[in-house]
Design a protein around this nucleic acid. Sequence first.
RNA 1: GACCUGGUAGCUCAGCUGGUAGAGCAUUACACUUUUAAUGUAAGGGUCCUGGGUUCGAAUCCCAGUCAGGUCACCA
Length: 501
Amino acid sequence: MLHLSEQQIIRRKKLDKLKLLGINPYPSEEYIITGSILDIKKNFLEKEIISIAGRLMRFRFLGKASFGEIKDHTDCIQIYFSEKNLFSEKMGIKDTYNIFLKKLIDIGDIIGITGFLFKTKMNEITIRAHKLTLLSKSIRPLPQVKVDKKNNKIYDAFSNTEQRYRMRYVDLIVNDHVKNIFLTRTRIIQKIRNYLDDKGYLEVDTPVLQSIPGGAIARPFETYHNTLGIPLYLRIANELYLKRLIIGGFHGVYEFSKNFRNEGMDRIHNPEFTVLELYIAYKDYYWMMDFTEKLMKCIWKEFQKEEEHNINFKTPFPRIPILDSIKKYTGFDLEKIKEEDLRKVCHKLNIEENRNMSKAKLIEHIFEVKCEKNYNDPTFIIDYPIEMSPLTKRHRHKKDLSERFELIINGQEIANAYSELNDPIDQLSRLREQMRLSGNNEKNESLSIDQDFIRALEFGMPPTAGIGIGIDRLVMLLTKKSSIQEVLFFPQMRPEKNGKK
RNA sequence: GACCUGGUAGCUCAGCUGGUAGAGCAUUACACUUUUAAUGUAAGGGUCCUGGGUUCGAAUCCCAGUCAGGUCACCA
């Protein structure tokens, strides 16, 4: 049943031999280090005695001496072992080198090294090891990635996407560039958080389990609460809860919200994804555009120093009404168009349409297919048709439009924002209209319309501007990755079949 | 959901029109005291994704399934 490869069997045997020699392959004691490898390399001091711990990544034997490379969370350093100088707790000089190190330690093992620093003939900072401690035995062989340091060329990279995603831990051990993506991801989020905190906005937590999944239109994941005896849904958005907090008197709230949508998966959709939602009282969508510009510029400066992108972050970002954009790229003026004529336009543009798609939906579809890809530099697309924005205020001057913008960068939607609708009566009728469009009958109203949210609005919500920024997409943009899976530690995968590997 | 491409040793990959399964790294053994994609010699290692079919004979051809990637569709 348990099929082991030759290499796995050999490593398990080594485990037994270690135990026979009185060496615990998984010791409990704290292992004291004197610093991280990166610090040690930065502050190199000839002959300084240091102690480090990490994973053995490579090994080169040369008879009575040999070289290994150890990697910790910061960097990799070369270790020089020689027969004459190496000892371990359970073994003397010679045996430590010839038996412990040579026969029982493998690439992938986590070890501790004590020794002093020097530079080799090749001028590489190296630890001359005196003491070797096994901290954790690895019984599965690590993929051997070879790096030619002269030109930084990688050979035999661990590159199978499926294996990389399924065994992300291996991916992280072996592929430094992968680790860097996630370090960048965290730094981007920290940067945004600091930026918002500095402005005095409050980070909050709102429910992930909701009895009415509101704030967006999407198929939710369904679950069930045993004690309450009711269905619950994983949130598809947190918007309605953040607005309740604005009603409650906070002037600015935000949340890095993990949202869940039970829909298709592809290179830009994962069932769970992260959106930064931010709501600020007494502002409108014009203010939010200015704010977004500054925030994005600040992040861009921090994370794109190399200027490798061909994206120009010159402010102010252009602000283009969606209908103007469509006019520019298709030649059709849709401002006062009737639904029938709009369908004809779709045919002329070779765009699929069906009866289930509303007028607003068709307009949006045309934009996505014909226009979106043309905006490489950051651009605000503004003033969307009112029907497709049920939570947005009607435009103060343009009757059938709403005060909404999307930020497009590199042909992709990065953010979606609007002047929040705060008229409770209008809100209820818009949600009903939305419900009708999506084919639900009125009997289901109590199941699909969040009446408590309407009640909250009835108490009065200040005029508010809100924005959602797709964090995964933003990280993709800043790390130049074309799939969302590359910026998520553990992207959703189909389960592996009966114990393959 | 549709179509295209792929799944062979721990990893990266060859394997032609069907004829005993290959390489490099890794592993094991030996040699080697400043190497760095270390080197040299030798050895071991395979459910060729799964299940059917065609055939004297299938990693290879056909069908179905499965997993991944890509393109499209769906998705505020």
